[in-house]
Write a protein that binds this DNA or RNA. Structure first.
Length: 594
DNA sequence: CTTAGGG
DNA sequence: CCCTAAG
């Protein structure tokens, strides 16, 4: 595995990795995807602040929700057949971002586990084995020890404490070797089951995660279910020659999650905001925050998604595996989330209680405070998120083509598979302080808030029946303007084959251009016709030689005339013949009827 | 899966 | 480019 990851501490809050960021445009998209998550966090922060303010006149409340890069536990479930089922216990979002160089940071009361994580991580990863993934907005997927270090225990639904299963080693590596992905000490199949039946993962975009524009449409779920494999039929796993984006997934509805994300933004209200440059230490910034006594400061490092079941064929590529995980997580996050507050292991349901009444105060050890993300929560929103917030890009596809993908084990074609750098997910709530200066490294694992149990009940509800709140799981394929050469080839093919045989056009002229589907060609032709019809001044993009546009018009006119006739079917012959016809057609168009 | 069109 | 309805 070549992922190199910066020390967590860095991402956690001291020093932001100065890794190259994906182009803003790329990141933007990602941001949109994360909107829900961010909203939630923002909402959470806002809530806490509100309470704080009401109970005390503190005005310096600040929150910081950071995402950690890291850990994800994977465990192998079954191995029937040739598929691997892995359980991803958790993911965490890297604390990347802040492309605008401004991030808000707030000191947190008393927690200092950064170093701890850092140390562990480094050790686990063999020191530098992982490259920062944040560069591309990705998440590092591994380092389980971290979990133990940071989150020693996890409370299970039944109140029982369990140690998080942790698997070390990168997912990719394991997968490649066909070795176990992890221990399976705790198999909670109920969490989130995600099965991938198809082993066709070459698509350059996530198959299951398709953008759903019409969220309100009843088609949404239908589509979703279809994509996920609920409707998987005989065609499961089958994909057309051109289309490389089909796959089927199955997943069980019950999923519980504690999600995570991080939001750089502090509560809109009056939290104090500190900004610092992305790569710098926040000491200066932090110190700027006025320390008020009655305020409670804390930061949520991350939220964790308990588990994800994933099944992929052994023949699948690492990239596809990553994408699969990404998709699973996206689906999980898409259903809406609710934040829960847990103090001393107990969930605080009364939203009206003040923090101090609840036992949350600066004086207290905040380690007994935890947050949970529960499925489908109404409590989202409130805090206006600003789109300007740099969020962690998680969208794989996008980044893939544009940013230098961190080296990964498998080499894959640039466009299609690197998408992964970002698939990761796990979020663990992180609470730590960004105190400046001396942080004790690994001294205190407790700094991390113990993750409370998830509400199984809530989790049990699995949707498929419920509409996910608008989620933009899928993303658009990256735009790839046709080059003049391609246009030429297209025009040539259309001249010969006509405008109703896109599949043939594809075969003839773009056989090897996997990224050009016949639909793409059809669309391009459409635009070419339009382009040729407008004045040169109105055209945009790389100029297409007028000569080609003329041919476009000519062919368009010609084939239009042939409407109803043999529709080009009689074109078994060569292009020459066609050209002859074309000329004739042009004449016709000129007014001479044939 | 392909086509054809609208978005 | 995406999404769908149709065939």
């Amino acid at each position: 595995m070549v992922f190199k990851r910066k020390l967590d501490c860095v991402s956690v809050g001291f020093d932001y990795p100065n890794i190259p960021k994906a182009p803003r445009s790329c990141r933007r998209k990602v941001i949109n995807k994360r909107t829900d998550a961010m909203d939630l966090l923002a909402s959470l922060a806002g809530k806490l602040l509100e309470e704080c303010e009401s109970s005390s006149s503190a005005s310096s409340n600040a929150f910081e929700v950071n995402m950690n890069t890291h850990r994800k536990e994977i465990k192998q479930e079954d191995d029937d057949h040739d598929k691997k089922t892995c359980v991803v216990n958790s993911f965490s979002f890297p604390d990347d971002d802040d492309d605008d160089g401004v991030l808000e940071r707030t000191p947190v009361c008393e927690t200092k586990n950064v170093k701890c994580e850092e140390g562990v991580t480094e050790e686990e990863t063999g020191g530098g084995r992982f490259e920062q993934v944040e560069a591309t907005g990705g998440f590092v997927t591994d380092t389980c020890k971290l979990e133990e270090a940071t989150v020693p225990r996890t409370v299970c639904g039944d109140g029982e404490l369990k140690s998080p299963s942790c698997v070390d080693g990168s997912l990719a590596r394991r997968q490649g070797n066909h070795t176990k992905l992890g221990r399976d000490d705790d198999d909670d199949e109920k969490l989130y089951s995600y099965h991938k039946f198809s082993n066709k993962f070459k698509s350059y975009r996530s198959p299951t995660i398709r953008r759903i524009r019409k969220s309100l449409s009843s088609q949404y779920w239908k589509q979703m279910a279809k994509d996920l494999g609920h409707y998987r039929g005989a065609d499961a796993g089958v994909k057309s020659v051109y289309r490389k984006r089909k796959s089927c997934y199955g997943y069980n509805a019950a999923w519980q999650r504690e999600t995570i994300y991080k939001r750089r933004r502090s509560s809109p209200e009056r939290s104090s905001v500190v900004t610092s440059d992305g790569g710098g230490i926040s000491s200066g910034s932090v110190s700027k925050l006025p320390e008020k006594r009655d305020s409670v400061k804390l930061s949520i490092k991350s939220f964790r998604i308990p588990e994800l079941f994933i099944e992929v064929p052994e023949t699948a590529t690492v990239g596809s595996l990553k994408r699969t995980v990404m998709e699973a997580v996206s689906v999980l996050l898409s259903g809406g989330i609710r934040v829960g507050v847990v103090v001393h292991g107990k969930k605080v349901r009364d939203d009206k209680k003040t923090l101090s009444q609840t036992g949350i105060s600066c004086g207290e050890n905040l380690t007994n405070l935890g947050f949970t993300l529960e499925p489908g929560g109404p409590s989202k929103v409130h805090v206006p998120l600003c789109s300007q917030d740099p969020l962690v890009p998680i969208d794989p596809t996008n980044l893939s083509e544009r940013s230098a993908a961190p080296p990964t084990l498998d080499t894959k074609p640039p466009q299609a598979d690197d998408v992964d750098n970002n698939n990761h997910l796990e979020l663990v709530p992180y609470q730590k302080e960004i105190t400046v200066g001396e942080e004790e490294p690994s001294s205190d694992t407790r700094a991390i808030v113990p993750l409370p149990a998830l509400e199984v009940e809530a989790l049990a509800v699995v949707p498929l029946s419920q509409k996910p709140k608008r989620t933009e799981l899928a993303q658009r394929r990256t735009r790839r303007p046709f080059s003049v050469t391609e246009v030429e080839a297209l025009v040539q093919a259309v001249e010969e084959l006509g405008t109703g045989r896109w599949r043939d056009v594809k075969l003839r002229a773009f056989e090897s251009a996997d990224h050009r589907t016949y639909v793409d060609l059809k669309d391009k032709w459409k635009t070419l016709v339009h382009t040729a019809s407008i004045s040169p001044q109105q055209r945009r993009g790389e100029p297409v030689p007028q000569e080609l546009l003329d041919r476009v018009l000519r062919a368009y006119g010609y084939w239009s005339q042939r409407q109803g006739k043999h529709q080009g079917k009689g074109g078994g012959g060569g292009g020459a013949h066609k050209d002859a016809d074309m000329n004739r057609g042009r004449v016709v168009e000129s007014g001479v009827s044939v």
